[in-house]
Design a protein around this nucleic acid. Structure first.
Length: 421
RNA sequence: GGAGAGGUGGCUGAGUGGUCGAAAGCGCUGGUCUCGAAAACCAGUGAACCUCCGGGUUCCCAGGGUUCGAAUCCCUGCCUCUCCGCCA
């Protein structure tokens, strides 16, 4: 949520930012609603002041045993006027909040401008693409050959875009998230285990609602949604709270399943584990003071990269263009893994900073040294998404004889196994 | 799921329908004292919104209602606790 006061005082800045994000929000309409709202507030507060004063007089008269009938009669009319204005005010505020809740965050000045991912910029590359003497099979082929991935069974259980892992295959996934959780907690992250079903208010807090309603699985009877990412429950952990400055920055990590309907993605990446309705992910969340946010972004990015460096899989860091930024994001860097089997880069991690956009929606604040209450800044990044990384391991660690070598850092979590097949 | 009790400031906990934004204690902040600290004492200590920057309005779980006036009365929802049932 953008700050209404900021919009009011800097309408041109806001419009320019939204234009860079290719957003068509009607800021003039919002400004008009805000002006109307404040006008009604001025009127109704004047009446309430009058009511409070007269009520005090009525109380005084009654205590003194005098008649207050005249004042009471006059106040009856004032009470009606207040009720009417309050009703009008509520309507205006609902309308304004609704419009405001659809306005995306503004991009930072250093975000490359462009309408889609073709304008994304490579920031740097890490590692070298392995040179292979043999034809590397895509992960769905090698996985089925090794008997560790079963897409047919998954389809029977749930439909397309699900996967089943078995034997060392299942063990490998467990090894991956244990490796990640151990790394992050060793680096000071607080491990969190949260619900994966959350209410609509929580979904609103991080900005999934109202816009992404169709992309999520929801339980209408209970006002609950399956989370698309642990960002949602973990960031919202301090929803509605005023933290102390000494609590910040907060670094949290959680492993959860993530659920995505992938509506509108029909036909894209339909094979394999690249695009699935359910996948595991280790998510990193930072909550910090505004002045720390730039620094925290760098730390978060480095932490996400550390996972990939440990696995020794080549990747590149991409700066997302303004048009490719998510609704709530002010700036996002994606980590893209080189996937040898399909010979292209696949996004496995997204590191974003949200300024106070989510904090406003969640109403998460902190008290600084001067005891002033301010909104926190929030950031998050995958560290990492399991399914895609899993696919990349099967492809990058594939051997000519059809076996897959286990990355060294995962072997302790595999009971010492160094190879599948 | 059934029966009962309850939700008040960072915490504990008062509160008769009318100066209650709310007693008291704790905590916290500043000060006095001290070589320093503790103790003691003094003072301060919620948030949001509107503003002609004087001030004003709102908030005692949430949303409705009664009333000239609601933390206080009524209804609904949510949550917590106790007991029963069911259950991994």
């Amino acid at each position: 949520m953008l700050d209404m006061r900021f919009i009011r005082e800097n309408p041109e800045t806001v419009k320019a930012g939204l234009a860079r994000k290719y957003d068509k929000s009607d800021i003039d309409r919002i400004l008009k609603l805000d002006e109307d709202r404040r006008e009604i507030i001025r009127q109704v507060e004047q009446l309430k002041k009058q009511r409070n004063e007269t009520s005090a007089e009525i109380a005084k008269k009654k205590k003194a045993g005098e008649s207050a009938d005249e004042a009471i009669a006059a106040m009856r009319k004032v009470g009606e006027d207040i009720a009417e204005l309050d009703g009008k005010l509520r309507e205006l505020e609902n309308d304004l909040q609704d419009k405001l809740s659809w306005v995306p965050n503004l991009p930072h000045d250093d975000v490359p401008v462009g309408k889609d991912e073709s304008a994304n910029e490579v920031i740097r590359e890490w590692g070298e693409k392995p040179v292979r003497e043999f034809e590397v099979l895509p992960h769905w082929e090698i996985g089925e050959k090794l008997g560790i991935i079963d897409f047919k069974a998954a389809a029977r259980l749930s439909g397309s875009m699900f996967y089943v892992l078995k034997g060392l295959g299942a063990r490998l996934e467990r090894a991956m998230y244990n490796y990640m959780l151990d790394m992050h907690t060793a680096d000071g992250y607080i491990e969190c285990a949260t619900p994966v079903l959350v209410n609509s208010d929580t979904m609103f807090g991080t900005g999934q609602l109202p816009k992404l309603d169709d992309d999520m699985y929801k339980m209408d009877e209970d006002d609950l949604y399956l989370i698309p990412t642990a960002e949602v429950p973990v960031t919202n952990l301090h929803k509605g709270e005023i933290l102390d400055h000494s609590d910040l920055p907060l670094h949290m990590v959680a492993y959860t399943p993530c659920f995505r309907r992938e509506a509108g993605a029909a036909g894209k990446d339909t094979r394999g584990m690249t695009r699935v309705h359910q996948f595991g992910k280790v998510e990193l969340v930072h909550i910090c003071r505004p002045e720390e946010a730039t620094d925290e972004f760098d730390k978060l990015l480095a932490q996400a990269e550390k996972v990939l460096q440990g696995l020794k899989i080549p990747y590149r860091v991409m700066a997302l263009a303004t048009g490719d930024l998510s609704f709530a994001s002010a700036k996002t860097y994606d980590l893209e893994l080189y996937s040898a089997g399909v010979d292209r880069y696949v996004e496995v991690s997204s590191v974003s900073t949200f300024d106070d956009f989510q904090a406003r929606r969640m109403n998460t604040r902190f008290r600084d040294e001067e005891r002033k209450v301010r909104f926190v800044h929030t950031l998050n990044g995958s560290g990492q998404a399991l399914a895609r990384l899993y696919a990349a391991i099967l492809e990058n660690y594939q051997n000519a004889d059809g076996t897959v070598t286990i990355p060294e850092v995962l072997r302790p979590y595999m009971g010492g196994t160094d190879k599948i097949g």
